[in-house]
Write a protein that binds this DNA or RNA. Structure first.
Lengths: 339, 339
DNA sequence: AATTCATGCTTCATCGATTGAGCAAGCCTG
DNA sequence: CAGGCTTGCTCAATCGATGAAGCATGAATT
C-alpha cells in the first residue's frame, strides 16, 4: 500500500518551506511560546493553519531529546487482572494527562526480574518520574532511578528510599477481622480464630494485615495458632491449595476466613464450591480488596476496599509539591459488606 | 537531594572518553552490531564492562530519532475495569516484549475524542504500529495512521480500513442464547423470549450479538419483540435502568436474560438483588464475557469467554506476516457455564 | 618492491525540535 | 540625524545515537 510512498512525515522544516519562513519560527509557533519569541500573530496563524492542513505532528523523540524534561511519567504495575490495579492504572492515566504528562505503564507479572528490567527500560525512555506499584523490591528501583536523577514514588507497597503511598493495612485488617469475628459470633455463636489465607509473608502489606488480624483476635480474647496464618502467595491455585491442606489437617473447619486479595479469594471460593466442605453453610468471609461481583456473592462477606482515588491524589500531591522526604502516607481503606 | 548534582546521565561520549575510544565504537558495541563494524572483541569487552560499571542506559529518544523504525508498538484500550480488556493488555505486553517491541498502552475511557487524541499522541511518539482495541471509530484512527505511514490493526471491534481481529459475536451469541433458552425451558418449562440488555446498538459487536440472539429465538420458534432488546450502553447504571424500566412496563419478567458484558451484568445483578424482583427464583443468565466471580455467582449463568490468547495470536500473526489486506478474523469465544 | 586486502578503528553528517544569540528594519527621542 | 529601543524574524549549535565513508596499519600476494 504505502510501500511505494514511505509516507515521509511532515517536519517543521517542511512547514517552514511551505510557509516561506524558518524552522525556528515554526517550532516557536507550534509549541506555543511564539509570544515570547516575538513572532507576529499573522505568521503564527498562517503556520498553525498549514500545520493543520498537512496533518503535522511533533516528533516527540526529537523534542524530548532536546528538552531537559520529557514530561513522560512511568508506572510499573504487577497485573491487570483485578479491579484494584485496574483502577489505579485508569486514575493514573487520567491524572497524568490532566497535568500534561504522558503516562506509560508496564505490567511486570509479579516478576522481580521484570520489574527491574521494566524500570531500566523506562529510564531509557527518559521518564521524568516513575511510580513503582506493588513492587517486590522498590528500593532497588529507587536506586536505579536515583542514579539517573529520576524521582520515584512507591505505591501500594512501601520502600525506604522513596516516598510511599499505601493503604492503612493494619487498620483495615484490624477492622475487617473485628467484623468477621462479630459475624461469626452472631450467627454461629463461636469464639474461634479465623483462617488467614493469601499474600506473601515477606511483603509489608501482608505483615501489617497479619498484625491487624492478630490484634483483633487478641482484643476478642481469641488465641491464634501459627497454622491459622497461611500467607501462601496471591495466586488462586495457591490459596485453593492452602484451603485443601487446612481441611486435611483439621476436623472442624473455621467458620470465618480472612482472604488477602480478590485474586486469592478466587481460589478460596472455587475450593468452597467444589470441595463439598461448608455444605452446612457458608463461612463468614473478610476480603482485603474489593470487586463488584464479590460484593454480590452473598451476605457472608465483608470487604476492605482500598481507596484508590485518595491514594492517587496523594501520589500526585507528592509529585506536584516536589516533596523529597521518604515518608509513608497511609490511606484508610473503606470497609463494608455488600454495598 | 539530587538538586545539587542534577545527575547528568552517562552517554556514549562519556563512555568513549573513559575507554579512550570513539562514540561510534561505543555505540556499535552497545547495540550489538560490533562484529559487522569490525570492532575487536577486546575493545568490545572493555566497553561493555565500562557501560555496566557506569550504569549506562541508552537514550531511546536519541536512538529512535536516528533509526527509521522505533520498535514502539501502541495500543489503545477503552477501560481496565474488566477481565477481558485486562487480559488483552497483559498478553499484548508479553507478546510485544517477546518480539523486542516496547508496548505503550493508553486507556480512552470509551471517549471517542480521547481515542483520536490518544492515537495522535502515539503517532507523535513514533509508534511503528497501533492496535485500536474496542475503538468507536476505528476508521478515523486508521486514516490518521495511514497518513503517517503507520500500520493499524483493529481488535475487538472491526474497521474497514485496517485488518481486524474480533470474536465471533454472532456464533457466540447464537450458542449462548440457545443454552439460556434451553435452561429456561428445562427449569420453568417456558417458551418465552429472553431480554437482551447492554451494549451499544450502533457497534458491530452488539449488532452481531443481537443477530445471534434473534436467530436462536427463531430456531426455537419464539417471537422477539423489539422492546425485548435494549442496547442501552455498557455502564452498570444504564443496564440497571433498563431493567427497572422493563419491570415497570411488564407484569411478568422474563425468566432469562442475555447480558452484553460483565460491566452491564454488574448493574443487572445489582438490580436483581435490591429491587426485590425475582425473589421467586433467579432468572437464567447468559453473559457475553467472562469473569471468575461471575462464574461463582450460581448455576443459573452461562458465559461466553472471549478467546484472548487466540485473538492476540492473530493480531501478532498479522504484524509478523506484514499482511496488508483489510480482512476480519473472527475468533470463536468459549461458551460454558460455571467452569 | 609494489600492490592488494583485511582489520580495526575514527570522522562526520544526520535524525527533528529547541533556543540563545544576533541581525535588519522601523520608530522614537533629544 | 545619531543613538537607542522595539519588533519580528533567522542562524546555528545542541541534544545522543547511528552508520556510511574513510584512513591508517600490517599482512599477504605477485
Amino acid at each position: 500500500m504505502n510501500r511505494t510512498t514511505p509516507a515521509k512525515r511532515t517536519t517543521i522544516y517542511d512547514l517552514a518551506e511551505l510557509a516561506g519562513t524558518s524552522a525556528s519560527a515554526v517550532s516557536a509557533v507550534l509549541n506555543g511560546n511564539w509570544k515570547k519569541r516575538r513572532i507576529s500573530a499573522k505568521l503564527a496563524e498562517r503556520i498553525t493553519k498549514l500545520a493543520e492542513e498537512q496533518g503535522y505532528a511533533v516528533n516527540m523523540q526529537a523534542s524530548v531529546l532536546r528538552r531537559e524534561r520529557s514530561k513522560i511519567i512511568g508506572m510499573i504495575v504487577p497485573k491487570y487482572d483485578n479491579r484494584y490495579f485496574g483502577s489505579i492504572v485508569e486514575q493514573f492515566e487520567v491524572r497524568a494527562r490532566e497535568r500534561g504528562l504522558f503516562p506509560i505503564i508496564t505490567c511486570t507479572m509479579r516478576d522481580p526480574e521484570l520489574e527491574v528490567e521494566a524500570a531500566r527500560t523506562m529510564l531509557s525512555y527518559q521518564v521524568d518520574c516513575l511510580i513503582a506499584t506493588g513492587a517486590t523490591d522498590p528500593d532497588r528501583i529507587a536506586d536505579l532511578c536515583a542514579g539517573a536523577g529520576v524521582r520515584t514514588i512507591n505505591l501500594d507497597l512501601p520502600g525506604a528510599r522513596a516516598p510511599s503511598v499505601i493503604s492503612d493495612n493494619y487498620g483495615g485488617a484490624l477492622e475487617l477481622t473485628r467484623r468477621v469475628l462479630a459475624n461469626c459470633r452472631r450467627e454461629y455463636g463461636v469464639k474461634a480464630p479465623l483462617f488467614f489465607v493469601g499474600g506473601r509473608g515477606t511483603d509489608h502489606n501482608t505483615m501489617e494485615r497479619v498484625r491487624g488480624f492478630r490484634d483483633a483476635h487478641a482484643e476478642a480474647g481469641i488465641a491464634v495458632d501459627e497454622a491459622m496464618i497461611q500467607a501462601c502467595g496471591y495466586a488462586p491455585e495457591k490459596a485453593e491449595n492452602a484451603m485443601r491442606q487446612l481441611a486435611a489437617r483439621t476436623s472442624t473447619l473455621p467458620r470465618g476466613l480472612f482472604v488477602n486479595s480478590t485474586i486469592s479469594l478466587e481460589g478460596v471460593m472455587r475450593w468452597i464450591r467444589y470441595s463439598g466442605h461448608y455444605s452446612d453453610g457458608m463461612p463468614h468471609l473478610g476480603c482485603f480488596d474489593w470487586d463488584p461481583f464479590v460484593a454480590m456473592l452473598g451476605d457472608h462477606i465483608e470487604m476492605a476496599r482500598q481507596d484508590v482515588p485518595k491514594m492517587l491524589e496523594a501520589v500526585f500531591g507528592i509529585i506536584d509539591s516536589g516533596a523529597g522526604d521518604f515518608s509513608v502516607v497511609e490511606v484508610p481503606p473503606i470497609i463494608g459488606g455488600v454495598d
